[in-house]
């Protein structure tokens, strides 16, 4: 999605140091310190996670850490909320994974 380079009311963004990182093995770019979810959205990536049980695609929902929908895996940090976790250079990020077993014991169709 498009970045707002110059906001008519709020001016310029505070994130200005370009960096690279990988998501699901693919090299992408973003800005140091911006939330991972925002960097991925700017790259057009909406699917942040596979539902642990059904494997259905999930993206961010609340963007401020309340809903836990945007969790994904950052190497060295484990499972994090991507809306609250600042992007760092060279981060190795993987979408949240579907689990091999049924976690609730409910039979999947």
């Amino acid at each position: 999605m498009e970045r707002i380079q110059h906001h008519p009311i709020l001016g310029k963004t505070k994130f200005h140091q370009p960096i690279t990182y990988t998501f699901n093995g693919k090299k992408l770019s973003g800005y140091r310190g911006e939330p991972i979810a925002a960097a991925l959205l700017a790259e057009g990536i909406r699917v942040l996670r596979r539902h642990e049980e059904s494997g259905a695609a999930r993206g961010f929902y609340c963007a401020i850490g309340h809903c836990m929908e945007c969790r994904l895996v950052v190497q060295g940090q484990g499972i994090v909320r991507s809306c609250l976790t600042p992007l760092e250079p060279g981060m190795i990020i993987t979408e949240g994974q579907q689990l091999a077993n049924e976690i609730t014991g409910r039979k999947l169709p």
Partner: peptide, 23 residues
């Protein structure tokens, strides 16, 4: 639950705090 559905506050945060348009 489809990616791209968000709370109205999330759209606000993406655009006005993170400076990325929600779509």
């Amino acid at each position: 639950t489809l990616p791209g559905v968000m709370s109205i506050g999330a759209a606000q945060v993406m655009a006005n705090v993170n400076f990325v348009k929600p779509g």
